[in-house]
Design a protein around this nucleic acid. Structure first.
Length: 249
DNA sequence: TGACGCTCACCACCCTTGTT
DNA sequence: AACAAGGGTGGTGAGCGTCA
């Protein structure tokens, strides 16, 4: 079954190598990189619907069970982890594969047209294999001396980026897919590494917040998938390949 | 031992979408 | 329409390790 990942990645890599910058405007400092990725998806011949800023994932591909979630990183700032807000990273969402697009781009000193320095597209299961428990956000109007202030138990998940999990990603473009990804690349690709991630022994089932003490106490149960391994293949096109390899950090 | 750089927790803020 | 929930970004300073 053909997938979009190879072509979308190849377009991103080509644009990085060609020095295609993003376009940052004063009124929209945040979304230039998302737009840059959207253009690459469209260039690859795929349609993405116009979505608002609050959709997750950012770009579901029309007619294909694949979607792209974009995470921009200003170079030299926060490269090792990212705020997922309340959407725990996952390889599946709404019946579609989720591919995370990370890119490092130049900061505000570069002006309105910062260059994209490198790209990593990673299947969500590389960040989190799934399973475990994830409750929706809840709130209750119980707080403060008058008892009328809303307490939002708003989960904020912070996941490692591939830049933390893998070596050799900077100044290169890199594609990370599950070993059992449904299709293989055409000619012109090089596998530059492989990675195996093993599931943890326990899963979080609850946590207790003690307000006077200002502490959080987790409660765990054994992970039914403890020790399960997930295998990933790491790819570049021959255009971006320089013989270097990628390994788990 | 002080300067420096880095990480991380935290803070501050913005805006849209969904629900009632 | 009002409110709750959800998606995002950038900045800062404490703490800590490294190195001259």
């Amino acid at each position: 079954m053909p997938t979009t990942a190879w072509e979308v990645f190849a377009n991103c890599e080509r644009a990085v190598l060609a020095g295609v910058p993003t376009h940052r405007t004063a009124d929209d400092k945040e979304f230039h990189f998302q737009r840059w990725v959207e253009q690459r998806i469209r260039e690859a011949g795929y349609e993405v619907p116009m979505t608002g800023r609050n959709t997750y994932p950012d770009f579901p591909v029309t007619g294909v069970a694949e979607s792209y979630e974009v995470k921009g990183i200003t170079v030299g700032s926060r490269e090792n982890d990212f705020d997922c807000n309340s959407a725990l990273p996952s390889g599946q969402h709404g019946g579609a594969n989720v591919l995370y697009v990370f890119g490092r781009y130049e900061g505000s000193a570069a002006g309105e047209n910062p260059n994209v320095l490198d790209i990593v597209i990673a299947h969500g299961s590389f960040l989190n294999a799934g399973g475990g428990y994830q409750a929706d956000n809840k709130s209750m109007r119980v707080l403060g001396s008058y008892g009328d202030i809303l307490l939002r138990d708003r989960k904020m998940y912070v996941s490692y980026t591939p830049y933390r999990l893998l070596t050799g990603l900077r100044e290169h473009c890199t594609l990370v897919l599950p070993q059992d990804w449904p299709d293989r690349p055409a000619a012109g690709w090089v596998q530059v590494g492989s990675a195996e991630r093993t599931e943890h022994n326990e899963v979080l089932v609850a946590y207790h917040a003690d307000l006077p003490a200002n502490t959080l106490t987790p409660t765990f149960e054994p992970n039914p998938n403890a020790g399960a391994t997930h295998h990933f293949e790491i790819w570049r096109t021959t255009e971006g390949d320089d013989g270097s390899v990628v390994t788990l950090a």
